[in-house]
C-alpha cells in the first residue's frame, strides 16, 4: 500500500496561511490532489478485507473440492483460481487509478495469511502481487479509460496466465502430463470468475448507491443524467 498510498503534497502549510484569515489569498480548490484519497484507501482496505475473508472461505471450498476430485484434487485450484483474483479488476473498475489492483490483491493476501492463516503461507504475498499485476495489465494497456466487457475478459486472461507462470515456477507444472489442461482450466476460470464476475459485481454494487462517491458511481451518475436530458 506504500507506493500508491504515499501522501501527495501535504497541504497543511498552505492552509495555515489561510487560517490567519487573509482574505486576498488565492482561491485554490483542495480537491485537486493526485494519488489516492483517504476514502479510496479505506475502500481498498475494506475490499481487501472482505475479499481476503471470502478468499479464505474459498480455500475451505477448495479443500472440499480437492477431496471430491480424488487423485486429481490438485486440479481443483485451477477451476477456482479466477475467484481468488476477482478483487483486482473490481477495485480498478471502482477507483480507476493505476496500481489499485496490485495494492488490493496484496492487502487481501496479507489479511488472508497474516490474520486468517492460509495453507499457502507468506507466498500468498507473492501470489497476490503476480495475480494483481496480471489482472491489472489489461487496464494499464487501455490506460484506465475503457471498461467494456472485453477489457474484463482480457483482464481475466492476463491474470490467469500470470498465475500459471508462477505455478510453473513453484510446482514444476511444465514437467507434468497435465500442463495443457492446467493452462486451459486457469484461463476459463480467469475469464469467468475474475474478469466477468468483477464487472457484474461492480455494476450490482453501483446500483445500490454505496459507490456513489467513487469514480464508478460518478461516471454512472453522469451517464444517467445525460440520458435524461439529451444535450
Amino acid at each position: 500500500m506504500t507506493a500508491a498510498g504515499r501522501d501527495v503534497a501535504p497541504d497543511a502549510g498552505a492552509d495555515r496561511v489561510d487560517a490567519d484569515g487573509r482574505a486576498d489569498a488565492p482561491v485554490v480548490d483542495v480537491r485537486a490532489r493526485r494519488g489516492l484519497t483517504l476514502s479510496e484507501l479505506v475502500l481498498l482496505a475494506v475490499l481487501a478485507v472482505l475479499f481476503g475473508f471470502l478468499y479464505w472461505a474459498l480455500v475451505q471450498a477448495w479443500a472440499a473440492l480437492q477431496i471430491a476430485m480424488g487423485p486429481f484434487g490438485d486440479l481443483a485450484q485451477h477451476v477456482l483460481i479466477g475467484g481468488w483474483m476477482v478483487v483486482a479488476p473490481l477495485a480498478i473498475y471502482i477507483v480507476r487509478k493505476p496500481g489499485v489492483g496490485v495494492v488490493v490483491e496484496l492487502v487481501a493476501a496479507l489479511v488472508e495469511f497474516a490474520f486468517l492463516a492460509s495453507p499457502v503461507g507468506p507466498m500468498l504475498l507473492l501470489v497476490g502481487l503476480v495475480q494483481g499485476v496480471g489482472a491489472e495489465l489489461a487496464f494499464t494497456l487501455t490506460r484506465y479509460r475503457r471498461y467494456g466487457w472485453w477489457v474484463f475478459v482480457a483482464s481475466g486472461v492476463t491474470a490467469a496466465l500470470a498465475s500459471t507462470l508462477l505455478g510453473t515456477v513453484r510446482y514444476g507444472w511444465h514437467l507434468q502430463d497435465l500442463f495443457a489442461l492446467r493452462v486451459g482450466l486457469q484461463v476459463v476460470s480467469g475469464i469467468v470468475l475474475c474478469g466477468l464476475l468483477a464487472r457484474v459485481l461492480g455494476d450490482a454494487l453501483a446500483r445500490t448507491g454505496v459507490l456513489d462517491e467513487t469514480a464508478l458511481g460518478r461516471e454512472r451518475r453522469a451517464r444517467r443524467a445525460a440520458a435524461e436530458v439529451p444535450a
Partner: peptide, 22 residues
C-alpha cells in the same frame, strides 16, 4: 479561522479551500 468554502468569483460556485483533515 479557516476558509472552508470560498467563491471563485462573486456569485460563482464556491470551492473547498481547506481540506477536511486540516
Amino acid at each position: 479561522g479557516h476558509r472552508v468554502l470560498s467563491p471563485t468569483a462573486p456569485g460563482a460556485p464556491a470551492v473547498p479551500t481547506t481540506t477536511t483533515a486540516v
